[in-house]
Design a protein around this nucleic acid. Structure first.
Lengths: 347, 347
DNA sequence: ACGCTCTGAGAAAACGCTTTCTCATGATTC
DNA sequence: GAATCATGAGAAAGCGTTTTCTCAGAGCGT
């Protein structure tokens, strides 16, 4: 019908609300009402509309809907490195939790490029109803300035002072101290910390925690070695670790610890007989390394779902400026087989 | 009427094109033209508009833009399980490659629930300019029917016959055969395959490959054991593997192999001295297990970026029905330390 | 019977942008 | 000096929804 008149219409176009309206012999408005169940519609008409919609396989266009409603039912997440299992787990938890409430997630990977973070976050925010900023590497000042512009915002591994932004953080300082104590209690006297990325806030927290540890245990030697956040950097540090003479190694995270484990194995250094190694995060793989890795367990799976809960709270109570929750998790030391008493005290 | 609108304007609203137009003393149209550089605009006016936009920090609303342009600059990806490193790697490669062309990615995790896949894919498609369907578990008939409705579509680990949909696949049958041959060439005579999820197409391919292997090597014993696709299922299969008496184990993938490795270690079974184990995929962790895992390397990082390239091709040449590329990768056997000659032939 | 409220459906106005259409203005040509 | 053209800016029409506004007709009380 009328194909001459509307050549363009008939060729390509997806079925829209207008098609349903025409087929059911009602107005667009009524179709919308029926689809959304908002207003009272005569049951007979409603049925007619539903039948038409079903027959035409009508599915409302989300973009049109978003424009009209001013919301996209989508949230964004910005991570420094999608290759990191910790961020992957957070992403996954977030995605699954959000999906349960009918929200989707848009991802952005800043690839550890600090200057991209603000841009990516801003872009994500414009397309989404909120943003989760995961372990941002940017400076405090910049974060403080950015936070309000992103408003429905949830921070992971960072906090803001001025703005009250809900945040989820892990007490890395506490965790690393407990790991250090664990090594000391086993009898280790020479420790080394294999540090992480320079701009990582969680690395700074670990350093602060270790300062405290030093103050409490002046008798323990604690060396600081420069490293990174992934396998390769752990692997590459093998020589430096061996050279350090330390018997207890605190790796920045599980990835680094695993790289180190493998490097030590190649060099014939036995773990934990010759050297004890600890990780951090308790990524799923940590349990399955050989030997299984002693680490500080971060509730990696809860993090994502809690991030969503905090986001949802903000989205729901849009307007009412309530004070936002600052959740802090204490890591739990998970003792496995990569740590043991040193062979003999070298002092 | 007037008052209602004003009130709302002043309170909340983000700055829109109208604000910039007013400030610069031109029409919306002109602002749009300047922002997009589409038509010729008087340089003086253009400068004025740009200054106004800058001062107001104007950023076009992507939703409005999407509605007008009929594109969202976003693609969706549907995966069966975001916890699987293989899919994580694909997601990452896709995301990074797409970002380079100014596209974003929306994720959907079907959690291995076959019936959700079509729904998620459809939803994703409506919000995005295209969809990447990653290792869908749905049946062939359903996939064939769904494919055209998703049109800019890229399939990973599946193909369609009727529709010509670009697809990226890995020759799992070939890979598993090569691994089996590798074990045989080391002297193993009793093998076992620890299979994966029932609905996984890649698992079926492996089974086909192994049938072929059996035909070629009737003298070799090859047991089939039921398993899963993750750590835990590998770990849980430990007893069954030991009981099987096989000396060469073909695990469904690296995850399963790692779970098994850890289970064997706990039981005091040495790898590769007592039992040889192979994985599949060559996830980043495979290199760092102890012992490092012999596996079939899938170009996991290229997969995502190639998926984007295929997607981009389709988006660009919208309309012109060209025949679509079917890319197939041959896995490369990566011999590490988890395989060796069996201690002694039990026959 | 008359006005009254109610119910419910269509017309039209948003939402924020792009793009076509239209029409001044000033430059160009015979 | 009039007729023709190019240039470029504003008006307005989409894009596909939701939602307000408006108003016809039904039901009700007096």
């Amino acid at each position: 019908m009328g194909r001459g008149r509307m050549a363009r219409r008939n060729t390509n176009r997806r079925v829209g609300i207008a098609d349903v309206a025409e087929k059911a012999g009602v107005s667009h408005a009524t179709v919308s009402r029926v689809m959304n169940g908002n207003a009272a519609v005569d049951p007979g008409i409603a049925a007619r509309v539903r039948a038409a919609a079903l027959e035409l396989k009508y599915q409302p266009n989300p973009v049109g809907r978003s424009l009209a409603l001013g919301k996209t039912d989508t949230i964004g997440i910005v991570v420094p490195d999608l290759a990191n299992p910790t961020f992957q787990a957070i992403l996954r938890g977030l995605s699954i939790a959000a999906a349960q409430d009918g929200y989707r997630v848009l991802i952005a990977d800043s690839s550890e490029v600090t200057s991209e973070e603000a841009i990516l976050a801003g872009e994500a925010r414009r397309r989404c109803d909120g943003v989760v900023l995961c372990a941002p590497r940017m400076g405090d000042a910049e974060l403080e300035e950015l936070a309000p512009t992103l408003h429905p915002l949830v921070l992971i591994n960072r906090t803001t002072i001025a703005t009250n932004t809900p945040s989820l953080s892990v007490d890395y300082g506490q965790g690393i101290q407990e790991l250090a104590h664990h090594l000391v209690s086993l009898g280790h006297r020479r420790l080394a910390f294999l540090s992480g990325p320079e701009h990582s806030a969680s690395n700074r927290q670990r350093l602060v925690g270790l300062d405290q540890f030093r103050a409490e245990h002046p008798e323990i030697e604690l060396q600081m070695l420069h490293g990174g956040s992934n396998f390769d950097s752990g692997h590459e540090s093998t020589e430096a670790i061996i050279a350090s003479g330390a018997t207890g190694i605190l790796a920045f995270n599980d990835l680094v610890a695993m790289g180190l484990l493998s490097g030590l194995h190649e060099r014939g250094v036995r773990v934990p007989e010759d050297i004890s190694v600890t990780g951090f995060d308790d990524i799923p793989f940590a349990k399955y390394t050989t030997p299984p890795l002693t680490t500080a367990a971060v509730p990696i799976n809860e993090l994502g779902s809690l991030a969503w809960r905090r986001m949802r709270e903000q989205i729901q109570q849009a307007g009412e400026a309530t004070t936002q929750a600052q959740d802090e998790f204490s890591p739990r030391v998970e003792i496995r087989k990569s740590t043991a008493a040193p062979a003999l005290s070298p002092v």
